[in-house]
Simulated assay, not measured.
Amino acid sequence: MKILHIIPSISADMGGPSQVALNLVKALRDLGEDAEILTTNFGMGEIKTGDRLDYIFDESLNLSVPVWFLPYDPPNLKEFIFSKAATAWMWQNLANYDILDHHYLFSYLPTCAAAIARFKKIPYTVRTMGQLTPWALNQGKAKKQLYATLFERKNLQKAAAVHCTALGEAEDVRSFGIDTPTVTLPLGVNIPDEIPNARQRLRQQYNLPENVPVILFLSRLHYKKRPDLLLRSLADLQRENEPFFGIFAGTGEPEYIEELQQLSQALKLTKKVVFPGLITGEEKECLLQGADIFALPSYSENFGIAVAEALVVGLPVVITKGIQISPDIDAAGGGIVIEDTQSSLTSALLNLLRQPEERNAIGTKGKAFARHTYSWSAIAQKLATEYQKLCH
């Protein structure tokens, strides 16, 4: 099959969806499928556009996939990313593919691709990426209601299938009034090489004593992810005289990062937390393997790639019910699922910090669960089978 994945941008600044598209296409190609990506050069610096490139997303992962980069037209909204060049390219080339796979809602490239695909009678799937949760729909509510009325409901209703990563996401599709068939498959995660001295390296890097536990936030620094709530809970831990060190690794809007840094100062946490920015490659793996607890108190996540990355290396996770894979993690005993409150987060962190044996047991269960469930190759095989059904 010839498959085209369409996503507005694969910039690291776009967070987990970029990793999903790249890893999924790589896994499909490993199975022998002819899969490619169409995107824009938004957030990609001076990258050459208009040609298909074997784009190296992360040399440490040896991840190389064919990507068509088309120039976007500034000024632009981060979520929308209009591209006149991509429009022309799609009119000329979409008929060369057997099936299209669209990432994102409320964005120009997948919206335009859906309209052209219907005109040319090309089947397409849609990955909603958690954008139909009640919380997500309430962000910019008026604009999304208008966009849904004009485009998005029809795009979803006319799709061959909607790819959901959890049962909760499939329920959100139905609640949105869409009766298109859904395919529920989790996303995958790469299993990294073990770094035997990760704990020691991490503590040397931040000049920490060996016995100080590290609490890791590794995600986009966005108010949806609630790093501010985690900061307030860390202040609670400090008042309890509980030893810890917090690392908030990720990129985000400069104004919001400044707000978080000011909050850490107000909470007297400046010596207990750091904001190292975007961490990738081996340094990221060292963070995951050297930390003691992973925390993501997000309002809403359809999957949470960072959560799966933590699980797969045996790092116990503390997550909210808004992360839609939380029921599976809870059932596997691989993490603590909390209410969306500061007191609930603080209590969970205290329990893990004060019970290292329990912490290790949870990490072991989470690791076994993630390595069995979140295999890219297995997921790609199932998705390729679904593509075949939809094409026929």
Rank of each mutant, 00 (worst) to 15 (best):
T128S: 10
I116H: 02
I6C: 01
L288V: 08
L216W: 04
S377I: 13
M129L: 14
K78E: 12
V318K: 00
N190R: 03
K48R: 13
K268I: 10
I191F: 15
A198V: 13
V126P: 01
L94F: 10
P123Y: 13
K365Q: 14
P209N: 14
R371E: 12
T341I: 04
A115C: 06
T125H: 02
K158H: 15
N155G: 06
P123M: 12
I191L: 13
Q200K: 14
G290K: 02
S233E: 05
E358S: 11
E386D: 10
E255F: 11
P181W: 09
L229N: 00
R226I: 09
D51K: 11
L350P: 00
T184D: 02
M129W: 04
N302M: 00
V337L: 01
P327A: 10
D54E: 14
A295Y: 01
Q265S: 15
N76I: 12
H102T: 10
L349A: 05
I215Q: 03
H102R: 08
W89K: 01
L349I: 11
L345W: 05
A21G: 02
A114E: 08
A249T: 13
V214G: 11
A117F: 03
Q145K: 14
D236A: 09
Y72G: 05
G250M: 09
A88G: 06
M44K: 08
S343N: 09
I10W: 09
Q205M: 07
L185E: 05
I215A: 05
L53Y: 05
K141R: 12
Q19C: 03
F176H: 13
I257Q: 14
P227W: 07
S9M: 09
E285T: 03
M1S: 15
E46D: 15
T184F: 04
I329D: 01
I81F: 10
N76C: 15
F151P: 03
F245N: 09
P123A: 10
Y256N: 03
A21H: 04
Q200I: 13
P209F: 06
K382G: 03
T128Q: 06
N62S: 13
I319D: 00
I325G: 01
L234D: 08
A95P: 02
Q92W: 01
Q131L: 15
E258W: 02
N211Y: 06
D340G: 02
S175R: 15
F294A: 02
W135Q: 07
A370I: 06
K141E: 11
W376G: 07
T49H: 09
Q131G: 04
N190H: 05
I323L: 01
G290E: 03
R153V: 00
A380Q: 12
I122N: 04
L221I: 13
L105K: 04
V317M: 03
E169F: 07
P74R: 08
E309W: 07
T133H: 11
L77D: 14
D98R: 09
W376M: 09
S107E: 05
L202H: 11
H163C: 03
Q324G: 02
